[in-house]
């Protein structure tokens, strides 16, 4: 069971308090009418599904209820960074390098 840090509550808690909501930084297009069919399908369904360092959304569903983001190594399951929703996407390559991947 993973140990997850909520940047809003500033606590580490067991995974059972949280829900993972898939890849982070996939923004809903501001004006969907301007988006091609292909791009809309990409927005809906296509994810990078990285083997390695990956930014994903988590929600402290049984805690404060807030959504936040985490960088996780999908191979080792190690979390490398937690940050609040709305913060810019960190440099995943740099994080991977620092973690010795």
């Amino acid at each position: 069971m993973l140990l997850v840090y909520c940047p809003y509550c500033d606590v580490e808690r067991a995974e059972t308090e949280f829900a993972c909501r898939g890849e982070a930084h996939i923004a809903r297009p501001a004006d969907p009418t301007q988006v091609s069919d292909e791009d809309w399908v990409n927005y809906l369904y296509m994810r990078t599904n990285t083997k390695g360092v990956y930014a994903e959304r988590w929600r402290h569903i049984h805690g404060c209820g807030r959504f936040f983001n985490a960088v996780r190594d999908t191979v080792s399951d190690r979390f490398l960074k937690f940050y609040k929703a709305g913060e810019t996407m960190p440099d995943l390559e740099a994080i991977a390098k620092e973690a010795g991947k």
């Binding site: 829900a19 909501r21 923004a27 809903r28 959304r57 929600r59 569903i61 209820g65 807030r66 959504f67 929703a85 709305g86």
Partner: peptide
């Protein structure tokens, strides 16, 4: 409820 929270917090803060 979770979907509403999601859109509210992350798409339309």
């Amino acid at each position: 409820f979770a979907t509403m929270e999601d859109y509210l917090q992350t798409e339309w803060p």
